[in-house]
Design a protein around this nucleic acid. Sequence first.
DNA 1: GTAGGGTTAG
Length: 545
Amino acid sequence: MEAEEFKDQQLQLSEASPKSAEYQALLRAGPRLRLLQQVHAHLVVSGSHRSKALLTKLLTFACAAGISPSSYTFTSVIKACAELSVLRVGRGIHSHVLVSGYGSNAFVQSALVTFYSKSSDLGVARKLFDKMQDRTVVAWNSMISGYEQNGHAKEAIVLFNRMLELYVNPDSTTFVCVLAACSQLGEVRLGCWVHDCIVSNGIHVNVILGTSLINMFSRCGNVSKAREVFDSMNERNVIVWTAMISGYGMHGHGSQAMELFHQLKACGSCPNNVTFVAVLSACAHAGLVHEGRQAFASMRQEYGLLPGVEHHVAMVDLLGRAGFLNEAYQFIKGLKHGELVPPVWTAMLGACKMHKNFDLGVEVAEHLLSVEPENPGHYVMLSNIYASAGRMDRVELVRNMMIQRGIRKQVGYSTIDVKNKTYLFSMGDKTHPETNEIYEYLDELISRCKEAGYAPESESVMHELEEEEREYALRYHSEKLAIAFGLMKTNHGMTIRIIKNLRMCEDCHSAIKFISVVTSREIIIRDKLRFHHFKNGSCSCMDFW
DNA sequence: GTAGGGTTAG
């Protein structure tokens, strides 16, 4: 039962006097189930079954009767443990399951697999799953979903393939899980296969499956396909709309996102808090400051929604990204003390860096470092701000501070698919058998870009920790290597698609614009947050990262 | 009457 529902029911309960005949009857029955059932029947007939006091007493006695739990009891309790993420309690219940002889009940087993997955104990979940004699489709779904939700999208897909090999029929939940895994990996091919499978089998695309398809196509770089799915759905709820709006936002198509937002309102649906985050983000990345401001104001005025931290962050981002640093700062000043959380300042810092406001940037970064000294992102930002102001002494200082505190930047990598195989490159990577050729090709490519006007930006390299990394870092960032490899291995005219785990640096962004010109290729990169479509020297993000 | 699935973002 949902918490709200539960509360509603509780409110309906009225009080009854402890001295009443019903209460006395309960006391006489005591912890004996048969007698309690009789009294309960009487309570229902007499209309006093809404009394909180009577029901409490009834339940207390019923529980004290020592009735042994059934498979129904266990599944419910295990599910509750998973939702509350109470690992210890769940493990205890698991022991009870075994003792009570429900260890091989399919329902209980699936619930346990989900429980361990949600507790991030995938090893135990998998062991349980492997031990099951007859695995229902739900059991497969539990395990596939477990992998996907814990970020192991590849394992999820491996298991899905195993399921097909064993002729287990996937259902629409299976597809939802697999599509989520495809979204994580940017696996267009499998994603499209699943889509075809759904279409050719005439599987009904309900709101959940539709949302998953929209997400998959958006995150795999094909927004127009996402839109086709959206248009083909005969039932849409606010989540479907939000997914489509965010798909547009992710690709920098701010006006389409806004168009959809207006349509959503026009058709009588109510946008929710999540919708507004997606809308504000879409505006921010398309420079639609006026529209964003309006949307933010309408949250409270038209929908009675209270803006939260995420909306404040989005507003600072919207204003700051567009260059209105003072307004962004004033917006922050207008927040309550408790609302001045690090993410708000991080958005402000991003704006300072973007628009090269040295003084404010340093001030904000130092504040962030004092409250979140363990966050590597803040050091990188501060270092970059110093670097772009030519304060190399300070850059060195920040670098040393990171080393001293043992803070390491995340390692970046990029992947590219060539002839149905995925290749992974990391910065300065030399593990590929054709390393020499790739590096030579890249060097030549960069020279051609320089002739066309490309000027490497040195600031992006400054946050690297190791000396030897610095030398290679800029030129050999993973996405550049992946692109060089892709250009070498694919035919002219083919689009290059790259997936990167971090955000792109400014230098790569500028270099790739030139690469798209000198090679006449379209290059699509999905970075940690969004898509960049490079074509003829410009990027779809319009430099609004 | 029990188990599995969807939306934001930095």
